[in-house]
């Protein structure tokens, strides 16, 4: 009886210790990100989705604490997956209102990473679950999988370079789910090449948005107007 009690106590203590580790790691990553109050970043954005074809374009991304984020194109149309791209790491790690749970370790791009699941405590939060793959040594989030209440599931892969000290990525690949697109041929009034009868290739229901950041202007102020409403 005494042995069972001691073993249970030991397990509980180990669990608490792990929980403290996750919390400490999240805190360290967040502290790095918190150094950035605002930024304006220039870069290039390309979209790869089954039913949308758009040219790669130069963009400017804006961020302001605590969770304001916008991507703007200088001229022309700005196409973004609904909801998802505006999710940024700061808002994911957001405050004390989440519970961190360890989900083990794995290797990502040749580097060992810790897997931590974040569960929001707020019932009304749009994000239901986030899984972060954190490089413990560099204290950087390499990958995030996010499940939202209204906008489906997303995945973000991040590569870091000269702005790693600020926790800001040089490249972000954002993967999202697409829905079916169909416009009746009678409305589209298309020229028929004579291959209507041929079986169509299965459509990939995943889409990606790739942003390559070329430079950041950090903590130099960002006008609220860029975020719109």
């Amino acid at each position: 009886m005494k042995t069972i009690f001691l073993s249970a106590l030991l397990l509980l203590q180990t669990g608490l210790l792990w929980a403290q580790n996750e919390a400490a790691l999240i805190k360290a990553v967040k502290a790095k990100l918190d150094k950035v109050a605002n930024y304006q970043a220039s870069g290039n954005m390309s979209i790869d989705a089954a039913f949308i074809k758009a040219p790669a374009s130069a963009i400017t991304a804006y961020y302001k604490k605590p969770n304001r984020f916008a991507i703007k194109k200088q001229d022309g149309l700005n196409i973004l997956p609904k909801g998802g791209v505006s999710i940024n790491l700061s808002s994911l790690l957001g405050g004390e209102n989440v519970t961190a749970v360890s989900a083990g370790t794995t290797v990502l791009n040749g580097a060992p990473v810790r897997i931590i699941k974040l569960l929001p405590l707020d019932d009304k939060s749009d994000v239901v679950l986030s899984t972060l793959y954190i490089n413990e040594k560099a204290q950087l989030v390499q990958k995030a999988q996010v499940t939202t209440r209204d906008n489906g599931s997303y995945e973000m892969d991040m590569k870091y370079g000269k702005y790693a000290a600020w926790g800001l990525p040089d490249k972000v690949v954002f993967t999202f789910n697409t829905k079916e697109y169909k416009l009746p041929k009678g409305i589209a009034m298309e020229y028929d090449k004579g291959n209507s009868g041929k079986p169509q290739k299965p459509v990939d229901r995943k889409g990606t948005v790739t942003i390559n950041y070329t430079g950041y202007s950090i903590n130099k102020g960002v006008d609220d107007k860029v975020f719109g409403k």
Partner: peptide, 8 residues
């Protein structure tokens, strides 16, 4: 707007 895709 095409029958199977949107081209920008």
């Amino acid at each position: 707007f095409k029958s199977d895709m949107l081209l920008i």
